[in-house]
Amino acid sequence: MIEALIAFASVVLQEGTAAAPAIPASAAAALGVGLAAFGAGYAERGIGAAAVGAIAEDDDMFGRGLIMTVLPETLVILALVVVFIV
């Protein structure tokens, strides 16, 4: 079953390379990371604003605010994994 899948995949891949994909694999991975970073940035916009508000009221919130703000950054790290497996 698995052998058949691999054989099938290699055939498909060969056909794919023959037709040359519109976006090469590495470029697609780079795009993926870029989009993930964009999403993370958008998420951080709101959290950052709220965190700065909280810190302005109470300095002790600095640590917690910082952690909350960079949490969406995990998105980019996960997306970066794609770069290594392509």
């Binding site: 709101g46 959290i47 604003a49 709220a50 965190a51 700065v52 508000g53 909280a54 302005a56 009221e57 109470d58 919130m61």
Partner: peptide, 14 residues
């Protein structure tokens, strides 16, 4: 509108 910033400060004051 900057709801995030204002509500964070307001909640802290509340």
């Amino acid at each position: 509108p900057n709801y995030e910033y204002v509500t964070a400060r307001v909640r802290s004051r509340r």
